[in-house]
Nucleic acid binder design. Sequence first.
DNA 1: TATGAATGAGCTTTCATTCAT
DNA 2: GATGAATGAAAGCTCATTCAT
Lengths: 202, 202, 202, 202
Amino acid sequence: MSEERGKRGRDERRSQLLLAARQVFASKGYHAATVDDITRAAGVAKGTFYLYFDEKRAVFYELIRTFFDLVTEVGGAFAGEVPDRAEYVRRLEVAAARICELFRDQRDLVKLVYRESMGMDPELESMVREFYRRIARLEAENVQLGIDLGLYRADLHPLVVAYAQIGMVERILLGQLSDRSFPAEPDLVRQIVELALRGAGR
Amino acid sequence: MSEERGKRGRDERRSQLLLAARQVFASKGYHAATVDDITRAAGVAKGTFYLYFDEKRAVFYELIRTFFDLVTEVGGAFAGEVPDRAEYVRRLEVAAARICELFRDQRDLVKLVYRESMGMDPELESMVREFYRRIARLEAENVQLGIDLGLYRADLHPLVVAYAQIGMVERILLGQLSDRSFPAEPDLVRQIVELALRGAGR
Amino acid sequence: MSEERGKRGRDERRSQLLLAARQVFASKGYHAATVDDITRAAGVAKGTFYLYFDEKRAVFYELIRTFFDLVTEVGGAFAGEVPDRAEYVRRLEVAAARICELFRDQRDLVKLVYRESMGMDPELESMVREFYRRIARLEAENVQLGIDLGLYRADLHPLVVAYAQIGMVERILLGQLSDRSFPAEPDLVRQIVELALRGAGR
Amino acid sequence: MSEERGKRGRDERRSQLLLAARQVFASKGYHAATVDDITRAAGVAKGTFYLYFDEKRAVFYELIRTFFDLVTEVGGAFAGEVPDRAEYVRRLEVAAARICELFRDQRDLVKLVYRESMGMDPELESMVREFYRRIARLEAENVQLGIDLGLYRADLHPLVVAYAQIGMVERILLGQLSDRSFPAEPDLVRQIVELALRGAGR
DNA sequence: TATGAATGAGCTTTCATTCAT
DNA sequence: GATGAATGAAAGCTCATTCAT
């Protein structure tokens, strides 16, 4: 039981450090943030950091991975039993709504990912690429499903469409976060779904 | 004439350093690259760098701005005399083709921009944001034009559509650059134009 | 108790660095001395310096200020209960003796102050000026006291006399330190006191 | 004759650089001043500096030496035919007046000498020491003369008195230059002479 | 003589990481 | 486990000096 308590204590410390790091990174950026900043924000001594993480990068990796997992989860929820058209559309709406929520609730992580994840490190960079590759493939399957259901046209490459939809969504949501004159659309989710399903053309 | 030569010589050195920096940054990333790396790549002594740039960041800024200018130019070429539908479509095709070219010909710059431009610096970060804001506004005007011409539906906010199209294009092109299993589509430009005009739905 | 030890350890390290800096500065001069020289002399790593001082200048400031404090202390000991003539003379003798000691015992500091304190920095320079202003004012009060006691003539401005006495003392003592053919006067203190009280005239 | 003109031109350039250096050094200090600052102030190109001086230090040396020569000249004018008491006093008055003028007219040089001459360089430092040694010896001879004439007491070592008088004068004049609350004594020269001849005692 | 672009040694400072307590 | 003092590699930047033109 003391082991149990020890483990729980250990996990709490880790989370405490992760949370502190997330905030510090989000506010100063990865490079400007020092390990000292993080431990001070977490209220522990500097050396403690290295009891939970091998190096500064490690905690950054973990944060990025957390975000990727959250996104992948949304994308993955689409799969499953082959649905009919109505169900497909419904799933799309759910996914769009959840992604919007995600960007809203995890602003800190969003900042990290879109500000620095690429420029960090060859290793992390390939992790990011791998993420896009995976999620694009996932989405391409969904697109293929949409084609099979007759919802999407068949003359476009599913992977191209997948990348297009990913980019569309991320740029809209980033715009909403950082462009102060972005329209306060209450039905942004609807617009995203419309764009994905029917496009801008009439 | 000696002034002429001096000026030309000066500009050549600058370009030489810019080119070297572009390559070094693209291969090692901004933070891992040292001023020494750059000057060694340019075949000059370290101090020479500071005859042409105030600091390391300055050369990075200039490269980013260069890319932004190239993109803005493509977006701006759309404007002008109010066209008819056919002309609008033709312009769209030209712009898409030029953006594709741009991403292909300026891989180094693309890498810099999408890897590190955001995580650098508050100053640069706001330059990047400003860029997106500006180009989104530019594109939103084009979208409005498309609506007026009856090419686009009127029930979507032009700025949202603009961001969507920007994200769509950039994610597709980045995917093409970095996803090794991206389909070698010879008609990628056409697919982009189709997506922009008619969307993925049937 | 560990806090006690920590604090004591910290103070010792600081003193160790201050001492090393004092020696290094005295022998090579501030500008020629590097932080590396100082830490090597102190037997610690370079980074350790910055755990105790914000910058190279800071340690110099502290050394200069130390000397100024020592001198000011001597000058200040003069004040207090209004004395009679005999007491005044006795205090003068004590002060002269202590200043001589000070210059002898703190040669390193004397070197620093008279070699470089002025040329360092606007900030330090004004500290030096402030020191002279303060000590001159202090001494001027003593002179006024001497005038009141009938020991000094009343037709000279006390502040002028104060500056004169300060310069007299410092130049004599500096001469003794650096002019190898300076007479080895065993009664230098007496001569200084005589000069201050009665001057060179007969 | 062209050689004549060349020589004159050369000397003018030199003086131009010396003057510029004097101003630049006086305003920024020796270390903060760059060769570039000097040549820019002189209106010539950087390389030109090295056609007239071997190194940066050289011009500083020359400026310091100039000041020393001016002072030495004043001190030396005292010597000559053995005078009587009245003549001695008159010469003292003249010397005091000229030193005051010197400090007033050559503020830039005074700043240089008293701010940085000591901390520069072992070589320059020994030049400064040599200067003090020489001028102290010179003044000691004058003091001996005063003793012989019965103007000065014989129980003080002439060299000690010499240093005392030098220090007295320099500190008073420096105080006047930098202590903003220094009394605007119109008869400062008289007070200096009084202090030198009769001291502060009554 | 005059120029000013080029050089490169050398400095201060930072900070991720280690380790004795 | 927790601490925080100590480490030392590493990098940006300056500027006296040189030299081809």
